[in-house]
Design a protein around this nucleic acid. Structure first.
Lengths: 138, 138
DNA sequence: ATTATATACGCAATTGAGTTGCAAAAATGT
DNA sequence: ACATTTTTGCAACTCAATTGCGTATATAAT
């Protein structure tokens, strides 16, 4: 279980007001330690308002608590940022993996290989792998 | 200008019926030789129905005429496939670039560097670069 | 501690991309 | 030319996400 004081500290560090809803959601991310889709969160916190959930996720994303994982399937999925992320400095170089079987999206340890394109100024790269994850292969 | 007979040949080769709308849209892709967003096409062909446009793009995508470019911004963008694509064999290994200034998405020549993740079975990879394109840098 | 101010919440309504159903129109095969 | 299959166009619908606004709550100031 993640302590309330730790969660509170994280929220403050990211210039976010400490509200019950935010504590619950951040606490859930920290305890699960995996990416969570909007649906996951909606199911878990079904007593609270969808709009508030959207706004909370947006606030977390803007302030460097979460990062939104690119996914064309139409279901927003979020992962915890590294400790170093803030609203100012919000950088992610890791790859993501989406499993065709279980549908779960994972943040991979590996960084995106750096790519150069002559004449282009590259600021950011997103690399999403699809296939079958470690759990489903077994 | 792209000849009608050539367009017709391409449609037939991809097992698509030759209709006025399809000829116009494919012809526009061939003449422009760049990726086009749904909005681009809607503006260009504003006399025709949105639904038909969606269905045409879906048919083209399924049959290997176009490929849908992953984009989290919520605007579907499409690019011409290579000649080798068909409804059966529809593979794209190239990277995409989205310019922060002009918003245009380009298909790059370069292929996505192959990545391996221990224990995972990778079937597909998408790599989108963001930054400033050749034209806007100048 | 109390008050003031800024921010977040909850509800209803709205937006906007994309889809579905269905009857009419057009394209292919014979 | 005819029969069959696919496509088109229209209206209505779905579903994720956003916006407006009055109320509630968190932080800052006194």
């Amino acid at each position: 279980m993640v302590s309330y004081s730790k969660i509170k500290k994280i929220l403050k560090a990211h210039k976010l007001r400490v509200t019950d809803g935010r504590v619950d959601i951040l606490g859930y991310f920290l305890s699960q330690n995996r990416t969570l889709s909007f649906k996951d969160l909606e199911d878990k916190f079904d007593e609270s308002d969808r709009v508030t959930l959207y706004r909370t996720l947006n606030a977390f994303t803007e302030n460097g608590v979460l990062h939104k994982i690119p996914d064309d399937s139409g279901f927003a999925t979020y992962g915890l940022c590294h400790d170093t992320c803030s609203s100012d400095d919000h950088v992610h170089d890791h790859m993501h993996f989406k499993c065709d079987e279980c549908g779960i999206i994972e943040c991979l340890e590996q960084n995106i290989p750096s790519v150069k394109v002559p004449g282009y100024q590259i600021k950011e790269a997103t690399l999403v792998l699809k296939g079958i994850c470690k759990n489903c292969v077994a």
